[in-house]
Simulated assay, not measured.
Amino acid sequence: MRRRGFRALVCAGVLTLAGCHRGPEVPRLTGTGSPYLRALWLPSVGPTPYDWRQLPGRVVLVSFFATWSFPSLAQLPTLEALQKERGAQGFQVVLVGLDLDGARTLAPFAEEYASLGIPVLVSDPALQQGQSAFGLIPALPASFLLDKEGQVAGAWQGMAGHAALSEAVQTLLRR
Protein backbone atom coordinates (compact mmCIF):
# COMPACT_ATOMS: atom_id res chain seq x y z
CA MET A 1 0.00 0.00 0.00
CA ARG A 2 2.82 2.42 0.81
CA ARG A 3 4.43 1.93 -2.62
CA ARG A 4 1.20 2.81 -4.44
CA GLY A 5 0.69 5.81 -2.17
CA PHE A 6 4.21 7.02 -2.93
CA ARG A 7 3.64 6.59 -6.67
CA ALA A 8 0.45 8.65 -6.49
CA LEU A 9 2.27 11.31 -4.46
CA VAL A 10 5.03 11.49 -7.07
CA CYS A 11 2.45 11.77 -9.84
CA ALA A 12 0.65 14.52 -7.92
CA GLY A 13 3.76 16.68 -8.11
CA VAL A 14 3.98 16.36 -11.87
CA LEU A 15 2.15 18.98 -13.85
CA THR A 16 2.19 17.35 -17.25
CA LEU A 17 0.55 14.22 -18.54
CA ALA A 18 3.77 13.00 -20.12
CA GLY A 19 5.71 13.21 -16.85
CA CYS A 20 3.45 10.87 -14.92
CA HIS A 21 4.09 7.37 -16.19
CA ARG A 22 2.74 4.14 -14.86
CA GLY A 23 5.74 2.48 -13.27
CA PRO A 24 5.04 -0.94 -11.70
CA GLU A 25 1.56 -2.27 -12.33
CA VAL A 26 -0.90 -1.94 -9.49
CA PRO A 27 -2.59 -5.31 -8.89
CA ARG A 28 -6.18 -5.38 -10.14
CA LEU A 29 -8.80 -6.31 -7.59
CA THR A 30 -11.00 -8.99 -9.09
CA GLY A 31 -14.60 -7.88 -9.39
CA THR A 32 -13.99 -4.50 -7.80
CA GLY A 33 -12.16 -2.47 -10.45
CA SER A 34 -8.93 -0.61 -9.99
CA PRO A 35 -7.66 0.39 -6.54
CA TYR A 36 -8.21 4.04 -7.54
CA LEU A 37 -11.84 3.44 -8.46
CA ARG A 38 -12.28 1.35 -5.33
CA ALA A 39 -11.05 4.32 -3.28
CA LEU A 40 -14.06 6.23 -4.66
CA TRP A 41 -16.56 3.90 -2.98
CA LEU A 42 -17.51 6.79 -0.74
CA PRO A 43 -20.84 8.31 0.29
CA SER A 44 -22.04 11.27 -1.72
CA VAL A 45 -23.93 14.34 -0.57
CA GLY A 46 -26.14 16.76 -2.42
CA PRO A 47 -28.54 16.44 -5.32
CA THR A 48 -26.14 15.20 -8.02
CA PRO A 49 -26.53 11.44 -8.43
CA TYR A 50 -23.46 9.28 -7.90
CA ASP A 51 -23.00 5.58 -8.53
CA TRP A 52 -19.40 4.33 -8.40
CA ARG A 53 -20.44 1.33 -10.53
CA GLN A 54 -20.77 3.69 -13.51
CA LEU A 55 -17.13 4.82 -13.35
CA PRO A 56 -15.35 1.79 -14.90
CA GLY A 57 -14.89 2.35 -18.63
CA ARG A 58 -15.07 6.14 -18.26
CA VAL A 59 -12.28 8.71 -18.07
CA VAL A 60 -12.55 10.14 -14.55
CA LEU A 61 -11.06 13.32 -13.10
CA VAL A 62 -10.92 13.02 -9.32
CA SER A 63 -10.45 16.41 -7.68
CA PHE A 64 -9.63 16.49 -3.98
CA PHE A 65 -10.73 19.75 -2.41
CA ALA A 66 -11.85 21.46 0.78
CA THR A 67 -14.54 24.09 1.15
CA TRP A 68 -12.06 26.39 2.94
CA SER A 69 -9.49 26.19 0.11
CA PHE A 70 -9.75 29.21 -2.20
CA PRO A 71 -7.79 27.49 -5.03
CA SER A 72 -10.19 24.52 -4.78
CA LEU A 73 -13.18 26.81 -5.18
CA ALA A 74 -11.51 28.82 -7.94
CA GLN A 75 -11.06 25.63 -9.98
CA LEU A 76 -14.77 24.73 -9.90
CA PRO A 77 -15.70 26.66 -13.10
CA THR A 78 -13.01 24.75 -15.01
CA LEU A 79 -14.30 21.42 -13.71
CA GLU A 80 -17.88 22.37 -14.54
CA ALA A 81 -16.91 23.36 -18.10
CA LEU A 82 -15.03 20.09 -18.63
CA GLN A 83 -17.97 18.05 -17.36
CA LYS A 84 -20.35 19.85 -19.72
CA GLU A 85 -17.98 19.62 -22.70
CA ARG A 86 -16.90 15.99 -22.32
CA GLY A 87 -19.50 14.26 -20.13
CA ALA A 88 -21.48 12.81 -23.02
CA GLN A 89 -18.26 11.34 -24.45
CA GLY A 90 -17.58 9.14 -21.42
CA PHE A 91 -15.98 11.58 -18.99
CA GLN A 92 -16.85 12.20 -15.34
CA VAL A 93 -15.57 14.71 -12.79
CA VAL A 94 -15.81 13.61 -9.16
CA LEU A 95 -15.14 15.96 -6.23
CA VAL A 96 -13.83 14.40 -3.02
CA GLY A 97 -14.16 16.68 -0.02
CA LEU A 98 -11.43 16.50 2.60
CA ASP A 99 -13.17 18.74 5.14
CA LEU A 100 -12.61 17.10 8.53
CA ASP A 101 -16.23 17.48 9.62
CA GLY A 102 -17.34 15.66 6.47
CA ALA A 103 -20.98 15.69 5.46
CA ARG A 104 -21.86 18.44 7.93
CA THR A 105 -19.89 20.93 5.79
CA LEU A 106 -20.02 19.17 2.42
CA ALA A 107 -23.80 18.69 2.23
CA PRO A 108 -24.58 22.44 2.27
CA PHE A 109 -21.70 23.00 -0.16
CA ALA A 110 -23.11 20.37 -2.55
CA GLU A 111 -26.56 21.99 -2.36
CA GLU A 112 -25.11 25.45 -3.03
CA TYR A 113 -23.10 24.21 -6.02
CA ALA A 114 -25.69 21.77 -7.39
CA SER A 115 -25.67 23.58 -10.73
CA LEU A 116 -22.17 22.20 -11.36
CA GLY A 117 -23.66 18.76 -12.01
CA ILE A 118 -20.66 17.11 -10.34
CA PRO A 119 -21.01 14.58 -7.53
CA VAL A 120 -19.48 15.51 -4.16
CA LEU A 121 -18.08 12.64 -2.12
CA VAL A 122 -17.27 12.61 1.58
CA SER A 123 -13.79 11.29 2.31
CA ASP A 124 -13.31 8.66 4.95
CA PRO A 125 -10.61 8.65 7.66
CA ALA A 126 -8.41 6.22 5.71
CA LEU A 127 -8.36 8.51 2.67
CA GLN A 128 -7.71 11.57 4.85
CA GLN A 129 -4.71 9.80 6.39
CA GLY A 130 -3.26 8.82 3.01
CA GLN A 131 -4.23 5.17 3.33
CA SER A 132 -5.82 4.74 -0.09
CA ALA A 133 -4.46 4.17 -3.58
CA PHE A 134 -4.18 7.95 -3.98
CA GLY A 135 -1.77 8.21 -1.06
CA LEU A 136 -1.39 11.36 1.00
CA ILE A 137 -2.88 14.45 -0.64
CA PRO A 138 -0.19 17.09 0.00
CA ALA A 139 -1.97 20.21 -1.30
CA LEU A 140 -5.40 21.32 -2.46
CA PRO A 141 -6.74 21.06 -4.99
CA ALA A 142 -5.11 17.85 -6.16
CA SER A 143 -6.49 16.24 -9.28
CA PHE A 144 -5.92 12.76 -10.66
CA LEU A 145 -6.95 11.80 -14.17
CA LEU A 146 -7.89 8.14 -14.46
CA ASP A 147 -8.00 6.34 -17.78
CA LYS A 148 -10.79 3.98 -18.84
CA GLU A 149 -9.13 1.13 -16.93
CA GLY A 150 -9.06 3.22 -13.74
CA GLN A 151 -5.30 3.81 -13.70
CA VAL A 152 -3.68 7.20 -13.04
CA ALA A 153 -2.78 8.78 -16.38
CA GLY A 154 -2.06 12.31 -15.15
CA ALA A 155 -2.01 14.37 -11.99
CA TRP A 156 -2.00 18.03 -11.04
CA GLN A 157 -1.22 19.66 -7.72
CA GLY A 158 -2.82 23.07 -7.32
CA MET A 159 -5.06 24.68 -9.89
CA ALA A 160 -4.94 23.10 -13.32
CA GLY A 161 -5.72 25.10 -16.42
CA HIS A 162 -8.69 24.32 -18.63
CA ALA A 163 -6.57 23.80 -21.77
CA ALA A 164 -4.20 21.30 -20.13
CA LEU A 165 -7.02 19.31 -18.53
CA SER A 166 -9.13 19.33 -21.68
CA GLU A 167 -6.26 18.11 -23.84
CA ALA A 168 -5.39 15.30 -21.41
CA VAL A 169 -9.05 14.22 -21.15
CA GLN A 170 -9.51 14.27 -24.92
CA THR A 171 -6.39 12.16 -25.42
CA LEU A 172 -7.73 9.49 -23.04
CA LEU A 173 -11.21 9.57 -24.53
CA ARG A 174 -9.74 8.77 -27.97
CA ARG A 175 -8.02 5.60 -26.69
Rank of each mutant, 00 (worst) to 15 (best):
F70Q: 14
L106I: 00
L116Y: 08
L82K: 04
Y50H: 07
R104I: 06
Y50A: 03
I137L: 12
P71C: 12
S123L: 05
V59I: 00
E85I: 01
V60R: 11
P77N: 13
G117Y: 04
L95M: 07
T78K: 08
Q128M: 15
Q92M: 08
R86V: 00
A107G: 02
G130Y: 12
A81S: 14
F64I: 00
A103D: 07
A133C: 10
L61E: 14
F109H: 01
R86T: 00
G90E: 01
W68S: 12
A133S: 12
P125N: 04
P138Y: 11
L73F: 09
P138L: 12
A110P: 07
Y50D: 03
F134P: 09
Y113C: 01
L76G: 01
V96M: 05
V45S: 06
P77C: 12
F91H: 02
L73G: 07
P47K: 03
R104F: 09
P71F: 12
G87R: 02
W68T: 13
W52F: 11
P56L: 11
A66D: 12
Q75W: 14
F65V: 03
G97A: 10
G117W: 08
G57E: 10
L61H: 13
F70C: 02
L100V: 12
P138K: 10
A103Q: 14
F65R: 06
Y113S: 03
G117L: 09
G102D: 02
L121I: 00
P49Y: 09
V120A: 04
V93R: 09
